[in-house]
Design a protein around this nucleic acid. Structure first.
Lengths: 303, 303
DNA sequence: ATGCTCTGTTTGTCCTAGACAAATTTGTGC
DNA sequence: GCACAAATTTGTCTAGGACAAACAGAGCAT
């Protein structure tokens, strides 16, 4: 029962730290220091992988690696919130009544209870308010809790999966006609979060737009081909906080150039909040703006 | 209107070829030969990226890079099937009546029509036969068509997204009680395909098992924690053909070791067909086997 | 005190170039 | 025609160096 070892590829897969970063840290900070196999290749003991996971999680909360690696083991006690402690308390004030109950169900791993509670809220409030007043803040809170280390990875996954189901079900029950405009919804590679996309789809479909959901992770070159094939009027992309902000302009400019000028390009999600959008790209910082923009598009193209 | 350039990171993102491979090819085969920016960093012209995409697609069909890179431009004409031309004709013989219609709707990008046709089949056949006779072969055919270059990436994405919706909706409509056994369904990082997982879930849920869907891409270390938290009896993982087969044993062994011995570990999907499963890991090569294994589990744990 | 710019440090990504092993193809003997 | 050995192809790993973008803190202005 000796503890298993991980190759550098396995560590990259499990921690999300790139091979380059793992080698760099070893060179620069002296951690991790993996063993070597017969061919000089790194073999990371499980203990070091666990510590790397802990470090990564704290980094995602805003700590810097230099500090974390220097710390002995009482990092675990510094699980405290860091980035956005103020935003969190602000968020707590606009708490909906059902919010706390839903979070509690998640923490108890009660999948059935959570889905039922969600569906109850949906039935009570209607889709639009459900999305704006329940799902959006809940997603925010789960994200915050995860950043604070108050949520396990698998709890967040369960939340995402179950919420996606309820939303998709609600969208599917809407009358699906040949609406206008035709909105193509997707995300770029490296961006797998779909909840925001689904929320937008729900709101736009409610307003009678025809949504073409392509799922996540569409290669950039494919997006323009898809837009042409589906005769889309608008291409809508979603970016989560996790998306590397520096890559955004370099990604959006070629895409904008590849799309015909008469197809609008909309981007939204918490990943674009700080973005200065390139010419011809419309940035949304809230769900409401999407609905407004839809109305504006219609009056513009009324002819 | 000069054509945009891509950094090596962007090319990796869009083509799926790793930075290491891109540099290696340049060194070894003399293609691609990107320009350099002021700091000596690679800048790939759009034309080279397009060609790389074409090469990658043919590689996924079984061609080898050395040949493809040598070819001038008439690679495009060699779009023909290669790997599994025999499997394809074999598959075509067991064609269901609705199959061809569904594929046609996809090729016409008729999202609404496709969903309606799917739901019609579901209503007509019932969930079990719908999964086994419609969704499973259709997935196979779409995969084959994609390998042959007869499907665009975005057409495959649309298929996946719409089919997931119909399946999830069907699963959601099943009575959700406290069933037994409790089955935790997920996939490992680098494995994002969820359709297989959903098919299994549909079949198991039909039989009254309690499924805990955690979505895709769960870090290996988290899977065992999730299994404990949800008091799972069985952990079921899905692997698509695209998953690198060599990494499988190295991935499954630590996971098996980390899981308590009384929790079974089931793996399935076309990615494990050639796998010799490690001790304590059960491999499934068809959907039926899953249902059988469920019955076997129950009689074993009848006490 | 709050907001700004400027500078120094931190940190990730990119670079070159060599080595080797796993997978595949090819060649050989039966 | 089939099994096994040899040669090829191909991807991933290793090493250390370089540099720019992001961040933190100092100094100055409001």
């Amino acid at each position: 029962m000796n503890s298993p070892s991980y190759t550098i590829a396995a560590v990259e897969r499990d921690t999300g730290l790139s091979k380059d970063v793992l080698r760099m840290w070893e060179r620069r900070y002296g951690f991790p220091v993996p063993e070597r196999d017969g061919h000089g290749e790194r073999l990371y003991p499980a203990a070091q992988v666990e510590r790397l996971c802990a470090i990564k999680r704290l980094m995602d909360q805003g700590y810097r690696p230099g500090k974390l690696i220097a710390m002995p083991v009482e990092e675990l006690s510094s699980l405290a919130p860091r980035r956005g402690a103020q935003a969190r308390t602000k968020g707590a004030t606009v708490d909906e009544p059902g919010q706390e109950e839903l979070l509690t169900l998640l923490r108890q791993h009660d999948a059935n209870g959570f889905v039922q509670a969600l569906q109850q809220q949906l039935a009570r409030q209607g889709l639009q308010r459900f999305v704006q007043d329940i799902v959006a803040p809940l997603t925010q809170q789960v994200g915050d809790a995860w950043e604070d280390g108050n949520f396990e990875v698998f709890e967040e996954h369960l939340f995402t999966e179950l919420t996606k189901r309820v939303l998709r079900q609600a969208v599917a029950s809407l009358p699906q006609g040949r609406g206008s405009p035709r909105v193509l919804l997707t995300s770029v590679p490296d961006e797998q979060h779909m909840l925001g996309l689904l929320m937008v789809e729900a709101l736009l479909a409610l307003e009678g737009a025809e949504c073409i959901p392509l799922g996540a992770q569409m290669p950039v070159l494919e997006i323009s081909r898809a837009a042409a094939a589906h005769r889309a009027d608008i291409v809508a992309l979603s970016f989560s906080v996790a998306f590397p902000a520096r890559q955004l302009p370099k990604l959006l400019e070629p895409l904008r150039a590849a799309l015909p000028a008469d197809i609008e390009l909309w981007v939204g999600g918490s990943g674009v909040l700080r973005l200065n959008p390139p010419a011809g790209v419309r940035r949304f910082s809230s769900l409401d703006q999407g609905v407004e923009a839809l109305a504006a598009w219609r009056s513009e193209h009324a002819g």
